[in-house]
């Protein structure tokens, strides 16, 4: 139901609303929020450096388009795999927990950014000079690809929530030691969730790079991407399918509305919204429904 409504919305809204990039961004953040939900909402690990996967995907995809002349669709998939590769390298970070994990993850994303932006690697990554993909520029195709990615993320997140695997992740989130004692393979389950989450961010980054076709390292490794995704998940309610969608819809919608209508009060209004959320709805908007006994998907 949730997936169907989402698909219908993004298929038909462009016929009445022209700002395709805003819709693209909305889809992208919804997919990222779902990806983050898989690792944070289901296992409790909050990766501040989630944008690292996004950037790895954007660059992985762009580089095979530039050097190997791949067409964009397989390049987007490869972007996802590039993020998975980075995710595999970062699996040892799970030896840390809580804030230590989050900060180490952020440092890893920054390190990746500096490697990509390093002028001495310009012959490989184009360094700080950025990427230009005029040969494959096709915003419409990128739009539909992003919709497919969002659908994939939603289905994956929905399946995980109801599956044995999802329950195992929930057990890890509550208490990893107890979960291990109950027969859950904590290391493997957590790694799978982590890599799936990385894959979603990677393909999202690849589709984003394809859509805008000209970007710099600072664009796709911008910390604000992680911050937005985290805030959208928290605002909507983590650990649910609906929460990240609602969070993105409300907050990203507000972000764009306030940014245009009253830009001078933008930071103030947005900050107040988040403070109110933390004070009165720490479990997100969907907790309002749960309190009334409504099952939130």
């Amino acid at each position: 139901m949730v997936v169907a409504i989402t698909v219908l919305a993004y298929v038909f809204i462009p016929y009445g609303y022209n700002n395709q990039f805003l819709l693209f961004n909305m889809m992208m953040y919804m997919a990222l929020a779902q990806g983050l939900n898989i690792i944070y909402g289901y296992t409790g690990y909050l990766p501040f450096g989630y944008v690292g996967f996004f950037g790895a995907g954007a660059y992985g995809s762009a580089l095979v388009i530039i050097y190997l002349h791949w067409s964009p669709f397989p390049a987007v998939l490869l972007g996802g795999l590039a993020a998975v590769l980075v995710g595999m390298l970062l699996i040892p970070l799970f030896r840390l927990s809580g804030a230590y994990f989050s900060i180490a993850n952020l440092a890893a994303a920054e390190a990746l950014y500096y490697i990509i932006a390093n002028p001495h690697l310009a012959s490989v990554t184009q360094g700080p000079y950025g990427i230009s993909l005029p040969q494959v520029y096709d915003p419409n195709a990128a739009y539909w690809t992003m919709l497919a990615i969002l659908v994939f993320a939603l289905i994956l997140s929905g399946l995980m929530r109801r599956s044995r695997f999802g329950l195992a992740l929930g057990a890890i989130r509550e208490n990893p030691v107890s979960a291990e004692m109950a027969g859950v393979n904590v290391v493997r389950s957590r790694a799978i969730a982590w890599l799936l989450s990385a894959f979603i961010a990677g393909v999202s980054g690849a589709a984003f790079g394809w859509y805008i076709s000209v970007f710099y390292p600072e664009t796709v490794f911008s910390l604000s991407i992680t911050v937005f995704a985290i805030v959208f998940v928290l605002f909507g309610g983590s650990g649910t399918l609906l929460g990240p969608l609602v969070g993105t819809l409300v907050l990203y919608g507000a972000y764009n509305y306030i940014g245009i209508s009253t830009p001078q009060y933008f930071q103030l209004t947005y900050g107040l919204l988040i403070i109110l959320l933390v004070l009165f709805l720490p479990s997100g908007l969907t907790s309002l429904l749960r309190k009334r006994g409504i099952d939130v998907p």
Binding site: N18, Q20, F21, I212, F215, S224, G259, I260, F266
Partner: peptide, 21 residues
């Protein structure tokens, strides 16, 4: 004129708005 707050993401959306809306 719109305020993009030095964000390329927001800027792309706002350029799009200027052209299409």
């Amino acid at each position: 004129a719109y305020n993009d707050q030095s964000s390329t993401m927001l800027a792309a959306s706002l350029y799009n708005r200027l052209i299409t809306q």
